[in-house]
């Protein structure tokens, strides 16, 4: 497949020939890629390229008309979104999707849903059915996530009242609370200032390296993508036009044309230089 993943057993996510159309709009056409366990994988591409649609297919919001999606070796193409969450796929959204009237804490606790065992009855009996004990145990773990993302000061605040940057962070916290094997981040840094972006990049790297989560991230900021991602896939008009190490991909003529808008004659000259960059990038 030429995706740089040596052992097939390392693949946590495999996308094969996925096509998705909305009426006449072909959001995705025969897209295939694979992500290795422990990888930080970025998807880039111009607006409307189909990046969000791709994530939606993986998380189950959209059903592709064609193709298969395998997660940890098993076909999940036809699983419901809530089922996919329980087997280890978590995500955040491009347009904020917090539970606006709930507290930050409750938002994050919702992420624990599939890990909690209490039901209507034991919940209603709280003290008697073990629900209290369970709540407190999970609360402790949630506090760790809160500390990690440095949102202690807003844990009691109503989610809908927070600033944009904080809401993005709470959304990340909620997704982490699922304890996913694979976390999908849709433009986690969009609309943030430089400082917030740096924080967010640090969280994502820590998440990947220290918490051991495999990350698939859509991001427009090329600086961040080049800095933190291990491999990059480029979509354009719903097609995969390149995939590889960040520097490799940046050097790809079609990418430069589609994504960076570089004129054709410049790119040939630049190509050799970029190839060297790719070697350096592989060493990290």
């Amino acid at each position: 497949m030429g995706d740089g993943i040596t052992r097939p057993s390392d693949r946590i996510l495999e996308v094969e020939d996925v096509s998705l159309a909305f009426g006449g709009v072909r959001a995705l056409t025969d897209v295939g890629f694979a992500v290795a366990k422990g990888e930080l994988f970025a998807i880039i591409g111009p607006n409307g390229a189909g990046k969000t649609s791709m994530l939606n297919c993986i998380s189950g919001r959209y059903r592709p008309q064609k193709g298969t999606i395998r997660f940890q070796g098993s076909d999940v193409t036809h699983l419901s979104p809530n089922h996919r969450a329980t087997i280890g796929i978590g995500r955040t959204f491009q347009n904020l999707a917090l539970f606006g009237h709930m507290s930050v804490l409750d938002n994050i606790m919702v992420g624990r849903h599939h890990l909690l065992r209490s039901n209507v009855l034991s919940g209603a009996l709280y003290w008697l059915g073990g629900a209290q004990k369970e709540e407190l145990a999970h609360r402790r773990e949630v506090e760790e996530i809160i500390d990690f993302l440095e949102i202690q000061h807003v844990r009691k605040a109503t989610a809908g009242t927070l600033s944009y940057g904080l809401r993005k962070r709470v959304e990340l916290a909620r997704a982490i609370a699922l304890k996913p094997e694979l976390i999908l981040l849709d433009e986690p840094m969009a609309g943030m200032n430089l400082e917030e972006k740096e924080d967010m990049a640090r969280y994502i790297v820590d998440l990947n390296e220290e918490w051991g989560m495999t990350v698939v991230m859509i991001e427009h900021d090329m600086g961040v993508v080049m800095d933190i991602s291990h491999r990059v896939m480029v979509l354009d008009f719903g097609r995969r036009i390149a995939e590889g190490l960040p520097a490799e991909v940046m050097a790809h003529p079609q990418v430069r044309r589609a994504y960076l808008g570089v004129a054709d004659d410049e790119e040939v000259a630049d190509e050799e230089v970029a190839e060297d960059g790719a070697e350096a990038g592989a060493g990290r």
Binding site: G60, N82, A85, R91, F93, A97, F99, G100, V110
Partner: peptide
């Protein structure tokens, strides 16, 4: 509050 993201959080 947000049924689409509730579903993504594993809620049926």
């Amino acid at each position: 509050d947000h049924y689409l993201s509730a579903e993504m959080m594993g809620i049926n």
